[in-house]
């Protein structure tokens, strides 16, 4: 009787007390079974997408400030936007060839892109008087507060994940909520401007920055790290340069944010991994494997 070994069964009366702790207690427990530790530099590189987005946001804000105090001519901004659109479209097509290996010379897609861009261009032009007077009865203070919230939301909700399967992202919009927040933010900002052409220029620019660039960015994430680092440095440099002409304090804040996002945040994530404690065992709800 005393030589009997304990068995992990319930149907048998065993000569052990009910609170007997067998040697095999918790032996089925697996800790951090599916855990893949992050390393610092790949994380830092992945955070470049966030850095780029923040830089873009500040470039947009500086542009607004200049248009608002009429130190920049809105017409130049319109031409700049058109130029950016063309450059962006070319980059898009080049990446299409580079990633998917498609042949150049598919003119139907070019015609489609041209058609829809002209459509957006004209409808924005037609809408700008409406947008200009949209918030005429609201005080500017409320607009600044509202815009900060909306743009903050845009940064928070943005989709910065590199696509797992490059074929699947071709038609996907990045986080819809994020883009909507940015567009609403730009609309209320634009409604503070003096004349129709300024409103039109700012809206055109914001579409480039917040709707089209994130789509291009998911594709840029598939390019070699060197390209991404170069792009990030260019954008951060540009944003810091433009911001320092407007305000020193804001520049300091911007630099702090950028350094934090690119270098400190990944380090914190790597550090916090030592607290990772994933418990797996037979009590977990099994995942049925059905073909």
């Amino acid at each position: 009787m005393s030589t009997e070994t304990w068995e992990r069964v319930l149907w048998k009366q065993q000569p052990f007390p009910d609170n007997y702790i067998p040697d095999s207690f918790l032996s089925a427990l697996k800790k951090n079974a599916n855990f893949r530790p992050y390393s610092y530099w790949p994380l830092s590189l992945a955070s470049c997408a966030v850095t780029q987005h923040i830089s873009i946001l500040f470039i947009f804000l500086v542009t607004f400030v200049h248009i608002y105090d009429a130190s920049w001519d809105p017409r130049i901004l319109v031409w700049l936007s058109i130029g950016m659109f063309i450059v962006g479209y070319l980059v898009w097509e080049i990446l299409e060839i580079y990633i998917f290996g498609t042949r150049l010379g598919d003119f139907t897609s070019l015609a489609n892109a041209l058609k829809s861009s002209v459509l957006v261009f004209l409808s924005l032009l037609a809408l700008s008087p409406v947008l200009r007077t949209l918030t005429a009865s609201t005080s500017s203070d409320s607009i600044w507060a509202l815009t900060s919230c909306l743009l903050g939301l845009n940064v928070l909700l943005g989709d910065y994940t590199p696509p797992r399967d490059p074929k699947r992202i071709r038609e996907r919009l990045t986080s819809v909520l994020s883009m909507n927040a940015a567009m609403s933010g730009s609309v209320v900002l634009a409604s503070r401007l003096q004349d129709d052409i300024s409103v039109f220029a700012l809206m055109l620019f914001s579409i480039q920055m917040f709707a089209l660039f994130p789509i291009l960015r998911t594709r840029i994430l598939l390019t070699p790290p060197a390209t991404r680092i170069l792009l990030t440095i260019t954008l951060t440099g540009l944003s810091v340069y433009l911001t320092c002409k407007v305000s020193t304090i804001v520049t300091c804040i911007l630099i702090c944010i950028l350094v934090f996002v690119t270098f400190a945040a990944p380090a914190m994530l790597v550090w916090s991994q030592k607290y990772k404690n994933e418990l797996r065992g037979p009590w977990d709800v099994a995942v049925p494997q059905v073909r």
Binding site: L29, G281, W283
Partner: peptide, 11 residues
């Protein structure tokens, strides 16, 4: 009610 349940509760 079972050995698995006990391990789960203890954890």
């Amino acid at each position: 009610v079972s050995h698995t349940g006990r391990e789960n509760t203890v954890l």
